[in-house]
Simulated scan of single mutants.
Amino acid sequence: MSRSSPPLRVACQGECMVELRESPTPGLLAQGIAGDTYNTAVYLRRLTSAADLRIDYATCVGGDLFAPRLFETWRAEGIGESLVRTVPDRSTGLYAIRTDAHGERHFSYWRERSAARAYFEGELSPLEQQAGEIDVLYLSGISLAIMGPEMPPRLRTLLQGLRSRGARIVFDNNYRPRLWASRDAAQSAFAQLYALADIVLVTLDDERALQGLASDDLALQHSLALPCPEVVVKRGARSTLVRRVGQSPIEVPVQTVSRVVDTTAAGDSFAAGYLAKRLMGESAVAAAEWGNRLAATVIQHPGAIVPPEVMAWATRRGAA
């Protein structure tokens, strides 16, 4: 689908990190570049045309030896860097990952001095300076968590400004308890995003943990009642639920896979598939189907970012 008007400008805000993963050679680690909102940016770029969407990543990079690798990777994936700040006295976030026999992930992080934490500190960020050009802002619970115990007032001002001029805000709940000073702090920040977002992508397990709810049924009831126009609830192997304002939730089946290799970026890739369709004007149900299909592909391969060739069915050439 091509647009006659200028492409929508999509900003994905968060942290891009160096990923260390066990390699087939004993004692060696394979290096990659990943991060939840960055993963979504990559998959969204692969799924769409530059004539339809301009995708920029909004973050800070440090002054260490990893920074050039980040820029090289972004350019290779077609991700714009005009919203990036460099903070020379900070470092690039780093994490190591190991997956078990069921594809479940176990992480170790080194990010206390991560440059991305400083995006709304000091001088105005490029995202704030260019806010009038942004059509869609995508961010996550992790984007919020790395900024401190409370939502930065400048981020709140940015979100309110975007909302007032009709830009769309998309929020993925991605709740990681150990990144927050307290659950109360996380609940407060999330509540503000839920009130401002146009689309909220909810992983049900995360929302249950965030709200301290006793069952999935209570977590689902809470999620479907969130005060935003469009809510998508991801429930792992169970069907995805889509609720648009004034409408009953619709179930969208997930795709069954024979073997789960690595669940890293399952939700991030779903978000990309969903947004690829919604931003092009297709229905929420069609978007959820696309998101589920991409997530099913990604979890059958190791790492957050799978090789482009395994997405052949979803490329512009191969897409229906």
Rank of each mutant, 00 (worst) to 15 (best):
G132R: 14
Y43S: 03
T203P: 13
L8H: 11
A237D: 05
R208P: 01
S5Q: 13
Y138C: 15
P227W: 03
V10R: 14
A312M: 00
T92A: 03
R105G: 07
P24K: 10
D216T: 11
S114I: 08
P7C: 14
A118M: 13
G236A: 08
L29G: 00
Y119K: 06
F190A: 11
R45N: 02
W74K: 03
C12I: 10
L294Y: 07
A197M: 00
D216E: 14
R154Q: 05
V257D: 02
I55K: 15
L213K: 02
T157Q: 15
A214Q: 07
D184C: 10
Y194L: 12
G122L: 03
V231D: 04
V242C: 14
S182N: 01
R183L: 03
D64T: 03
D198M: 08
I169Y: 02
R154G: 13
E15R: 10
W110N: 08
L53A: 04
S49T: 10
D100Q: 11
V42H: 01
P26I: 01
R156K: 14
A116W: 04
N292W: 02
G35W: 04
W180V: 04
M280C: 15
R208C: 07
E123R: 15
A295L: 05
Y119V: 02
R208L: 10
V84H: 09
A219P: 05
T264A: 13
L20G: 06
Y109S: 09
A11N: 09
A319K: 12
T203M: 02
M151A: 15
T59Q: 11
T86I: 07
L94A: 12
V260S: 08
T240Y: 04
T59E: 01
A225P: 03
A186N: 07
L159N: 06
L155M: 14
F270A: 13
E123M: 05
S114Y: 02
S223W: 06
